[in-house]
Lab assay of single mutants.
Amino acid sequence: KNAAQIVDEALNQGITLFVADNRLQYETSRDNIPEELLNEWKYYRQDLIDFLQQLD
Rank of each mutant, 00 (worst) to 15 (best):
W41H: 02
E35L: 12
T28L: 03
R45F: 08
D31L: 11
Q54E: 10
I49G: 00
D8T: 14
I49M: 09
L37Y: 06
L48I: 13
I15M: 03
E27L: 14
L11I: 09
W41M: 06
L48V: 05
T16L: 13
F18S: 07
L55F: 12
I15Y: 09
Q53P: 03
R30W: 06
R30A: 08
I6Y: 02
A10F: 03
T16M: 11
D56Y: 08
D47W: 06
Q46C: 08
Q53K: 13
N22L: 07
F51C: 02
L52I: 06
G14Y: 04
L11M: 11
R45V: 10
L11T: 08
S29T: 13
V19G: 01
Y26W: 15
F51E: 02
D56E: 13
A10Q: 01
T16N: 08
A3V: 09
L52E: 00
V19W: 14
T28K: 03
Q25T: 07
D47R: 09
Q53N: 13
D8L: 15
G14A: 04
Q5F: 05
N32Y: 14
T16V: 14
K42S: 14
F18I: 07
L17R: 00
N12M: 14
A3M: 12
D31A: 11
I6A: 00
A3F: 04
N39C: 08
L37K: 03
Q54D: 10
L48M: 03
A10I: 02
A20S: 12
L24Q: 00
E35W: 09
L48G: 00
E40Y: 06
N2P: 11
A4M: 09
D31R: 07
L38M: 10
V7W: 07
I33M: 04
L52P: 00
A10G: 03
Q5K: 08
Q54F: 09
V19L: 10
F51M: 03
E36T: 10
L17P: 00
E40C: 06
Q46L: 11
Q13E: 09
E36Y: 12
L17F: 05
Q25G: 08
N32M: 12
R45Y: 15
D47A: 15
I6L: 11
D56L: 12
S29K: 13
I15L: 03
I6H: 01
F51L: 05
A20C: 15
K1H: 04
I6T: 02
I15T: 02
A3K: 01
I33N: 02
N2K: 13
S29R: 11
Q13K: 10
T28H: 06
V19I: 09
A20I: 14
Q5P: 02
G14L: 05
Q54T: 11
N32I: 12
Y43E: 11
A10L: 03
E35Y: 08
T16C: 15
L52H: 01
T28G: 05
L52Y: 03
T16K: 15
E27F: 14
I49A: 02
I15F: 09
F18C: 09
R23M: 15
I33C: 02
